[in-house]
Design a protein around this nucleic acid. Structure first.
Length: 559
RNA sequence: UGUCUUAUGGUGUAAUGGUAGCACUGCAGUUUCUGGAUCUGCCUGUCUAGGUUCGAAUCCUAGUAAGACAACCA
């Protein structure tokens, strides 16, 4: 019997297995994906989603969706909806949907407990003063003059913070820990602040005092029974505080555990929500779902499949090392996935007429062609072959070098799914531009015929000049022209790739495209992938040019 | 002049004290009725210095380098 290949665990799975082995939390595994509804999900979130949901799946646990909605200034229900849509598109189902705002009362009650224990106090100093007193990572902080006020006074003031009579910024509730701690987060962290200028997207004007992340996040995990709270590396320094708050309120043997992993960095990409928002607001892209954006909805519009994103995430792994991942890896994953699933369609982006001079005028011959050579189940379709065709302008050269295997006078090429033709010449206008190419076909070489297997070096895609549709094609390239825009000192707008979008009109596409559904993925013969833009009439194509053309001829040229 | 974390080919990741492997890129071939594909081969690596050990990428110490932390953001 073959030995099953030993699957390597990432370090998080190893922790989970160890916890299971140690019998922690009654062998229960529970995770959560906790976005703040203040923006759209991007490929970096997909990495977290795959981990949170993946761990739950692999270890027969549960994963919940929790909106970390503790700051009404930035949050909106629009984002809640888009986040749920994107997670489902990625193929995951949450057990429950929770909101941190559902715990506002519980969190409030526990905060009052903490005040009663003398472990929290209301500070009336300004934000600037508090910041100054915190010191710096190398200089210890100093204590607030309000630090030791009586419990009764703290209680009264805390209640007042939530009535609306306290102005924003006038008071905060702070945990009383250690102003000299080497960990800045222990220097009396703020637990509650007053926000009365914005309604909360779910609780409206009910609350005027809102809990901060460090307090709310860990307790929310605890309320829900989360066993493994997975987050990105920058929260590493918060973990001792996470544990401190858990220790204050813990009851019984169960406790959640925070584990950090490296966030996703991609070459030629900015992942910062702030910069992405700026791109949208300054109309440098068409919106959050612009196909050049690293958002889930952008990738979806561009034609990426959920499978391709999963494959990519599998390839990059989870570690504690802050890595910069090559976008080529994502593009490779996309090609791999689309090669298996994408329906092929003929399209000519830069058309020039090819006239088959010995083919009868007015005849329309239907040629059978496969929809996907990698998937027989995709079936076949018929495409019209006529005397006048369109081929790509660069598929013809009058004076061709040796290794040019496409159209050039005297040379034979295969027209995909049709006949072998021999180029006989061309016609040019006064400027020397080729306007028509001529060829003769060999009637015995139709695809599938017994004599059709004659070796020819090149195969070209084509469309019938009389049976085709005009299309506008959008060619997308990388949004940024530098490898690591996030690290570049210059304004990120100077780093944009001016050629990231090219709109081409007058492209010719086979008529079968009329029957296609929006957002299906297709593949142009020879040239790449595209999907059909949903708002287009008659046909606007979105073409995905992810890497430079690697053509045997182009390769020769470079030598 | 702090605390925490990290360091394996060009890039990303595995090896959990016992043969340094995989993927992407690159290069060289191969092949094809379309595939930016296929198949084959090749290149390149354990940050440095000590220590523990029969044996160290792995454990310890020091150094070096990188990241995080001084929001009433999450």
């Amino acid at each position: 019997m073959d030995e099953a290949p030993k699957k390597s665990l990432n370090f998080i799975e190893a922790f989970v297995e160890q916890d299971l082995k140690d019998g922690k939390n009654d062998g229960r595994i529970q995770t959560r994906f906790p976005p703040e509804p203040n923006g759209y999900l991007h490929i970096g979130h997909a990495k977290a989603i795959c981990l949170d949901f993946g761990i739950a799946q692999n270890y027969k646990g549960t994963c919940n969706l929790r909106f970390d909605d503790t700051n009404p200034v930035k949050e909106d229900v629009e984002y809640v909806d888009s986040i749920m849509e994107d997670i489902q598109w990625l193929g995951y189902k949450w057990e429950n949907v929770y909101y941190a705002s559902d715990y506002f009362q519980q969190l409030w009650d526990l905060a009052i407990d903490l005040i009663k224990q003398g472990k929290a106090y209301v500070d009336e100093q300004s934000a600037e003063t508090i910041a100054k007193q915190k010191g710096s990572p190398t200089v210890p902080g100093t204590e607030s003059p309000y630090r030791n006020r009586p419990v009764e006074e703290n209680l009264a003031l805390f209640l007042k913070m939530n009535t609306g009579e306290v102005a924003e910024g006038a008071m905060v509730l702070r945990a009383k820990i250690d102003m000299a701690s080497s960990n800045m987060h222990f220097r009396d962290p703020i637990m509650y602040r007053v926000i009365n200028s914005h309604p909360h997207h779910r609780t409206g004007w009910t609350w005027k005092a809102y809990p901060m992340y460090d307090y709310a996040h860990g307790q929310s995990d605890y309320f829900e029974g989360v066993t493994h709270s997975l987050c990105t590396l920058e929260f590493e320094v918060h973990r001792p505080l996470y544990d401190w708050f858990i220790d204050q309120f813990k009851d019984g043997g169960y406790r959640p555990r925070q584990i950090e992993f490296n966030r996703l960095n991609l070459t030629y990409t900015v992942m910062s929500k702030r910069k992405m928002l700026q791109l949208v607001q300054e109309k440098l892209v068409s919106g959050w779902d612009d196909p050049r954006m690293p958002t889930i909805c952008g990738l979806r519009r561009r034609g990426y499949s959920p499978e391709s994103i999963h494959n990519f995430i599998d390839k990059i792994g989870y570690t504690k090392f802050e890595a910069l991942n090559d976008i080529g890896l994502l593009e490779h994953a996309v090609r791999e996935s689309l090669n298996k699933t994408a329906t092929r369609v003929n399209a000519v982006l830069d058309p020039v007429k090819l006239i088959v001079t010995n083919y009868p005028e007015g005849v329309v011959e239907m040629m059978e062609t496969v929809n996907n050579p990698e998937d027989e189940a995709a079936g076949t379709r018929e495409i019209a072959f006529t005397r006048e065709l369109y081929v790509e302008r660069d598929d013809f050269m009058e004076d061709a070098p040796k290794k040019y295997f496409r159209l050039t006078p005297g040379q034979e090429v295969r027209l995909k799914s049709a006949y072998i033709v021999k180029c006989t010449g061309c016609k040019k206008d006064n400027n020397g531009n080729v306007t028509e190419i001529y060829c003769e076909y060999d009637s015995q070489t139709k695809s599938g015929m017994p004599d059709s297997n004659r070796k020819v070096k090149g195969t070209l895609h084509w469309v019938s000049a009389t049976n085709c549709i005009d299309a506008e094609v959008r060619l997308y390239d990388r949004l940024f022209s530098v490898e690591n825009p996030s690290a570049d000192e210059r304004d990120f707008r100077d780093l944009l790739n001016p050629n990231s979008l090219e709109v081409r009109t007058g492209c010719k596409v086979e008529t079968s495209l009329k029957e296609t559904k929006p957002l299906d993925q297709f593949q142009f013969q020879r040239i790449g992938y595209f999907n059909v833009d949903p708002d287009s009439t008659p046909a606007k194509l979105v073409f995905n040019r992810t890497v430079s053309l690697k053509d045997s001829w182009a390769k020769e040229q470079n030598k």
